[in-house]
Amino acid sequence: MQFHACRLTETTRDNRRVSSGPREKQAEFDVPMEVLELILSQLSLRDNIRASVVCKSWLAVAVSIRRANRPPWLMFFPKYGELYEFYDPSRRKIYRLELPELRGSRICYAKDGWLLLCRPDTRGVFFFCPYTREMIELPKLRLVDQIVAFSSAPTSLNCVLFTIEHVSNSVIAIATCRPGETRWSIVNYDCCMPFYSSIRNKIVFCNGRFFCLSVTGAIGAYDPEKCTWIVLSVGPPKCMMFFSVHHYWRANFMAEHDGDIFIVCTCSSINPFIYKLDLVHGVWVEMESLGDMTFFANFLSSRVMTDILGKIGSNVCFSKV
């Protein structure tokens, strides 16, 4: 069956091939360019590349709308001195940069091109953008074995910082701050369900809430607008269920993508387990594959990206083996 373009006889649209005369060569391929663009732009990078093999005109459209993301760079802190290394995995190249302003600091979190750092000796907390070397100081905070996260770039309107400190098995303290404020607001919350908070927590910001995964697999959510904290009635994912101190080598990583939360667990098996949070049914659903996503796992802040060019797509990438 031929696939003819329909055309309205009673309208004239300037950008159409209305008066193009006989088109014998294109007769079997009569999808208007803008329709083809619309269809191909919905494809993942992998499907887009395959579509370019269909024919020459598809190649032109596929290439013109192709979006390929580059994997995030890895930043290495020097043991001595001020020479920081940045590794670009797509080019397998290392760049070095002297950043004396970061002396004595350690990294807390990274997101949207910004780093959150702290200086343990002075209790200083600050944002740093390695591209522009812009620095944004925040009020001081005493950090004890805890992870600090932020919702979005500090230059955005609704940036909030969040950290959670273990007080007792039934009480946690949540500290929040917004850039420009003069102090952190610290509030204690009673937990109906036990929540053991530690340096091994994983925190992501998703749909307006900070989700915090504890080392035992419990997950809590903090809403910075309503200032509410709840431990969700979601059982731990299968491979985190039997946590013990002897499993210190086990690691789990959590990241957000497009409104969904994913965790990657490394266990004794060769391949890591991948789970997606199903909030409606209160379960972690095991995933067979990452599909078009790439999971960049990191102890402090992991990240999920789609449409990564090359072999590392659809994989879990660890920053060190």
Binding site: Q2, F3, E28, F29, V31, A51, V53, V54, C55, K56
Partner: peptide, 12 residues
């Protein structure tokens, strides 16, 4: 499959 569904001649 795509070529068949769109009735496209492979011109490579």
């Amino acid at each position: 499959w795509v070529r068949r569904e769109f009735d496209i001649q492979n011109d490579y």
